[in-house]
Simulated assay, not measured.
Amino acid sequence: MTLIKQSLKNIWDVRFFLYKQPHRLLFEHVPKCGGTSVVTYLRQQYPGFQTFSMDNRAPLESVELFRKLPEEKRFQYRFLYGHQAHLIKDFVHPATKKFTILRDPIDRMVSHYYYVLRRPTHYLHQAVIEQQLDLKDYITLEISKELRNNYVHRFTQLEEGQMLELGDAAVDMAFQVLTQEYAYVGLLEQLEQDLAVAKKHFNFISAFKPVLANATAGRIKVEELDTVTLERVQELNRLDILLYQRIKTYRQRSFQY
Rank of each mutant, 00 (worst) to 15 (best):
R103S: 01
H125K: 07
Q126I: 11
R103H: 06
D107F: 14
V38F: 00
V110C: 03
P59A: 07
F66H: 00
E64Q: 15
G82H: 01
R43P: 09
L124G: 15
Y115K: 09
F66Y: 01
P70L: 02
H112Q: 12
E61R: 11
E61C: 06
L42I: 13
T121P: 13
Y41I: 11
T51I: 04
P120L: 08
R108L: 07
R119A: 09
Y81L: 07
K68S: 02
K73V: 02
Y41H: 03
V116P: 00
V39Q: 11
H125F: 06
E64L: 10
A127C: 08
T40D: 12
T40G: 13
L80F: 05
Q76N: 15
H112D: 14
Y41G: 05
D55A: 14
Y115P: 04
P59W: 05
H83S: 08
F75M: 15
I106F: 12
R108E: 05
V110D: 03
P94W: 01
Y77L: 01
F79E: 12
A85Q: 07
E64H: 12
L69M: 12
K68C: 03
L80K: 06
T121F: 14
L69Y: 08
D90M: 05
V110Y: 01
E64A: 13
H112L: 10
Y123D: 06
T100H: 05
I88Q: 01
H86D: 04
